[in-house]
Simulated scan of single mutants.
Amino acid sequence: MKFVETYGHDSGFFLDPSAYLAELPRLRGVLPPGAWAFASEPGHYDIPRADRCVKDLELAGIHPATDKSGRLVLDFAPNRFKHESGLRIGYSGVRHFSIAYHHGIDWMRVDTVLLDEILPDEEGGCIHEIALTDASITVRCQDLEAVWGSAE
């Protein structure tokens, strides 16, 4: 990620979205509409308090299209201590999708979201990067739609 900082250390994880939050106002009108709506949603980066903060969501499903439609869906289950509902992100016009596994944490049952970042892509659309506790996801697409309550 270019602006959001996430990394593990002896006592847990360091997370800092402040540089991205400073950059975010400049991305209005540059990011596709769905990507902008999700990135700028109130509470998205409010780690300790917001129900709609992505931090601690659990990766629950990856659903690529089996045709050439360019669709991809990622499902995230709620963390029972923090979220009222899960999150489903649907991507359109996907040009690239990858998961890089780090396999450095063996004490967690599932990969959970640390933070994410959405930036404009040089080829049009956007790049959505999601840092997980033991992996990272990158999606290059035309746009995305994030719906809370869809991945319980």
Rank of each mutant, 00 (worst) to 15 (best):
M1G: 15
M1V: 09
K2T: 13
K2L: 13
K2V: 10
F3G: 08
F3P: 07
T6Q: 06
Y7N: 05
Y7G: 04
Y7C: 04
S11K: 06
S11R: 07
S11F: 06
G12W: 07
G12I: 12
F13I: 15
F14V: 15
D16M: 11
D16I: 08
P17G: 06
S18I: 12
A19I: 02
Y20C: 14
Y20T: 10
L21G: 06
L21Y: 04
A22D: 13
L24E: 12
L24F: 12
L24K: 10
P25C: 03
P25T: 02
R28V: 09
R28S: 12
R28I: 04
L31V: 02
L31G: 02
P32S: 09
P33I: 11
A35D: 04
A35F: 06
A37H: 10
A37G: 11
F38T: 04
F38C: 08
S40Q: 12
E41V: 02
P42L: 04
G43N: 03
A50E: 00
A50R: 01
D51L: 15
R52N: 08
C53E: 08
C53N: 10
K55A: 13
L57Y: 09
L59K: 10
A60R: 07
H63T: 12
H63E: 15
P64V: 08
A65V: 07
D67N: 09
D67Q: 09
S69P: 01
L72E: 02
V73K: 02
F76M: 01
P78E: 04
N79Y: 11
R80T: 13
R80A: 12
H83I: 04
E84Q: 10
E84D: 12
S85M: 14
S85R: 15
L87T: 06
R88A: 05
G90Y: 00
Y91C: 07
S92F: 02
S92H: 05
R95A: 00
R95W: 00
R95I: 00
R95V: 00
H96W: 00
F97H: 05
S98L: 07
S98K: 07
I99N: 03
A100K: 14
Y101D: 14
H102T: 12
H102R: 13
H103I: 02
H103M: 03
G104C: 14
G104T: 15
D106H: 14
W107T: 12
R109N: 11
R109V: 11
V110Q: 07
D111T: 14
D111P: 08
T112V: 15
T112D: 11
T112Q: 11
V113M: 01
L114M: 11
L115P: 06
D116Y: 03
D116A: 05
E117P: 12
E117T: 13
E117N: 12
I118Y: 05
I118K: 09
L119H: 01
P120L: 01
P120V: 01
D121L: 06
D121E: 13
E122P: 05
E122Y: 00
E122L: 04
E123W: 00
G124R: 00
G124V: 01
G125E: 00
C126L: 10
I127V: 15
I127Q: 08
H128T: 07
E129I: 08
I130M: 14
I130V: 14
L132D: 03
L132K: 02
T133W: 07
S136I: 03
S136P: 05
I137D: 01
T138A: 10
D143I: 01
L144Y: 07
A146Q: 03
V147M: 01
W148I: 08
W148H: 05
G149L: 07
G149N: 11
A151L: 06
